[in-house]
Design a protein around this nucleic acid. Sequence first.
DNA 1: TCTGGGGTCCTAGGACCC
DNA 2: TCTGGGGTCCTAGGACCC
Length: 417
Amino acid sequence: MAPLALVDCNNFFVSCERVFEPKLERIPVVVLSNNDGCVVARSNEAKMLGIPMGAPYFKWKALLEGNNGRALSANFQLYGDMSQRVVQVLREFCPELEVYSIDESFLNLAEVKEDIESCCDKMKETVKRWTGLPVSIGVAPTKTLSKLANQMAKDQRGVKLLMSEEEQTEALRELPIEGLWGIGRRMGVNCRSQGIKTALQLREAPLGKVRKAFGVIYERMVLELRGTPCMSIHEVDEDKQTITYSRTFGRPIETLEELSEALCSYAARACEKLREQNSCTGGFYIYFRTNKHRPDQAQYYAEKQILLEVPTDDTRVILKRVNNFLKEIFRAGYKFKKAGVTLYSLTPKGQQIEMEFEKPKQLHDKLPLSMIDKLSARYGDRGLFFAAQGVGNAWKGRNEIRSPGYTTRWSELKFVK
DNA sequence: TCTGGGGTCCTAGGACCC
DNA sequence: TCTGGGGTCCTAGGACCC
């Protein structure tokens, strides 16, 4: 079975900061989110103090300072750069690599000729030497198991192999069900109510029953735990299917003008990202809300979803719409704390297909009828138009197999008499 | 007083088609 | 004229991840 490695940077944001400020070594360090609101990374020393991930900083400030700790504002530019350098090093060892997140990569070690364990040791040391960052490596036949191996590596010497069934069984036996990758709060409760308390019990559960009770995601998880890979390595980084830009405000906003300014700048940034990946957006939604942590204050949440007739990457088109719809849903008299813009139904730019039709019926194998109705209502029965379909991030024809429920959308781009 | 930001995938169910 | 089954399209919402 092909060994799959998960390489994970330890306490990534904190480790990045430590590379450039060695004084931060061996003291409790946390990195804070936007406006220094939440703890988004912790050093081991900070974890030992009991500071949880995602905790509001003001609740832990005193404890941290009382222990000579440091809190830093996040520097995502730096973390992005460091992340790329780590990936560069890893590619030298294994070109078949998937960048899973800013601090994690999956590697397919099938082609590695030498001993896997010593190869991993070498990778770990090389990353440390060339970037200054400590990593942990877990190796197993599937992603789910290598994630587990990686967790175990963190408690050990930084490298853990989980290739044999005996080792896997041992590891899963003691693992509470919530410790598995893909089991969150909700599923933990669900599993326990069905008598599944450990990862091993989930692995041994009948496939059909799991699928029926929990759905395909968990059926796949069981297979992965049994050593059958169900999640492959995605080497190319694919286009985003949605692009979001949202922020919590440093101070509450009350006027339409301020809110418009914020949302328009978010929309503009989102459009930049859109053009970077060379896509057009078929629609977007905007939302804003008051501070949900202040039940003593009047609460208001508003959201508006807009489907565009013509996909675009033109900021001006989006901004105009944002302003119009914002006026519709704005209410005065509230203190707004957060707002955001999400672009969705993205289509690759310049990959529109061209179709000629005489009667709407002829389009049946290409277009959903609802779209045809819209087109014929507007243009009558004859004409030539271009249509684009957004299916996730890929360009797919009608005959391709998709999971049911995938969002599919056709948008007219242009009509020519 | 102070509580982040950005994603993915799947399911259910209505509308509509043949 | 009446009725039903199988299928697609699309949205809303839930669950999870880092």
